[in-house]
Simulated scan of single mutants.
Amino acid sequence: MKEVKVLGPGCKRCTTTAEMVQAEADKLGVAVTVEKVTDYAAIAGYGIASTPGIVIDGKVVHAGGLPKPDDLARWLAA
């Protein structure tokens, strides 16, 4: 199971990103846990300057703006 964290203050883009991650994982048949991280200190700890950010299994894979579905599929399949 992949551990995915969506980093952001809880804005619409952050919520949409979390939904996109879950939808893509379901489509690929990849088991994931999606956690929303809204604490600014925790977000800063990942070195994220712009949100939403995505962390998969402890590795930052995206920061700023909505991710592309193709990128999500690649990150989740890796």
Score class of each variant (00 low, 15 high):
Gly47Glu: 04
Gly47Thr: 10
Ile54Lys: 06
Val30Leu: 06
Thr16His: 05
Cys11Gly: 04
Asp71Ser: 15
Ala73Glu: 10
Lys36His: 01
Lys27His: 13
Val6Asp: 02
Gly58Pro: 02
Gly53Glu: 09
Arg74Cys: 09
Gly53His: 03
Gly10Phe: 00
Ile54Met: 05
Pro52Ser: 11
Leu28Asn: 08
Pro67Phe: 13
Leu7Ser: 00
Leu66Thr: 06
Ile54Arg: 10
Ala78Arg: 06
Lys68Phe: 04
Met1Ser: 12
Asp70Ala: 15
Met20Thr: 06
Gly29Lys: 14
Met1Leu: 12
Arg74Asn: 03
Val30Tyr: 07
Lys5Phe: 04
Asp39Ala: 03
Asp57Glu: 12
Thr51Arg: 03
Met1Arg: 08
Val34Glu: 02
Ala42Pro: 02
His62Ile: 15
Gly65Tyr: 08
Gly53Val: 06
Thr16Ile: 15
Lys2Arg: 13
Asp26Arg: 15
Gly45Ala: 09
Cys14Tyr: 01
Pro69Ala: 09
Lys59Tyr: 05
Asp57His: 14
Ala73Gln: 10
Gly45Val: 11
Gly64Cys: 15
Ile54Val: 08
Glu3Gln: 08
Thr16Leu: 10
Asp39Trp: 01
Lys36Ser: 00
Val32Pro: 10
Pro9Tyr: 00
Lys27Asn: 10
Pro52Asn: 03
Thr38Met: 07
Glu19Leu: 15
Lys12Ser: 05
Thr33Val: 12
Glu24Ile: 08
Gly58Glu: 05
Lys36Gly: 00
Lys36Phe: 00
Val32Cys: 04
Pro67Arg: 02
Leu76Gln: 14
Cys11Arg: 06
Thr17Ala: 13
Glu3Ile: 14
Glu35Ser: 10
Ala31Phe: 05
Ala18Asp: 02
Thr17Asn: 04
Val21Thr: 03
Gln22Gly: 09
Gly47Ala: 08
Gly29Cys: 14
Gly53Asp: 07
Val60Trp: 06
Met1Asp: 09
Ile48Gln: 05
Thr51Tyr: 10
Glu3Val: 14
Asp26Met: 08
Thr16Ser: 06
Arg13Ala: 11
